[in-house]
Design a protein around this nucleic acid. Structure first.
Lengths: 116, 116
DNA sequence: CTGAGACATTGACGAGCGTCGATGTATCGG
DNA sequence: CCGATACATCGACGCTCGTCAATGTCTCAG
């Protein structure tokens, strides 16, 4: 097994790069953005952001042009991502933004700006 | 075709909801987040955010534990999303963050906070 | 021109996602 | 208890995505 010294003649290129995020951090961050990576879910978050009070599914469904099961599916994903909270009022289910969850996402992006 | 007046007896539930984003806005926003919805791409952005200067692919590849074609694939996606910029220096390709692109993503999240 | 190295592109595969109709569950009025 | 209403869950389908090996393209040294 011989070392290839000829490679030492090419211009310098690759200073070491300290790995930063753990696998788990990267996966968690990606999961957060993945929750926002769908047009229907973006609209849901946008609609809820415009409402001072919680909104029930019966208001969301006709505004989204997808079926009711699909709306439930997306709402569940957003809740699991920590971006929405669910609240049962009698027969109706009301959803509202989890401001902390959104702030977490915003903070991740702001952190990357620190290096400017 | 008869109107079902019995529905008027149930408690009020569904005030009209003004639709906000256009389909195109929702798709564009989702596409931006979709670019960040993968652990490997999150690590790439994070690595580039920690570097003052552009970073070449030969530095990124060994730090990401995926094959070289996969790294190229992710870099292309991030460039297409407007989050990265590519710069050719001789044989090497250097990438750096597009701060405007990241700011766009951050602004979207901040806009949703305005309603607090 | 020729060969080597850096990176991009292609093609293929498996896994995951968005969507819907059908069905289940829970709540309320009568 | 019974029917209706609101919402969730299930199962299935098609499509997209992440990944890699193989191959192509471009740049430079000699």
């Amino acid at each position: 097994m011989n070392v290839d010294f000829s490679s030492m003649l090419v211009p310098a290129c690759c200073p070491p790069l300290d790995d930063d995020l753990t696998d788990e951090d990267a996966r968690a961050t990606a999961a957060l953005f993945k929750a926002l990576a769908d047009p229907t879910r973006v609209r849901i978050v946008s609609l809820l952001a415009r409402s001072e009070e919680p909104v029930c599914v019966c208001e969301l469904t006709p505004a989204l042009s997808v079926s009711q099961p699909t709306v439930s599916h997306h709402l569940k994903k957003l809740v699991q991502a920590g971006l929405l909270r669910r609240e049962q009022r009698g027969v109706w289910a009301y959803y509202h933004l989890d401001r902390d969850g959104l702030e977490r996402a915003a903070t991740i992006l702001d952190l990357k700006e620190v290096t400017i």
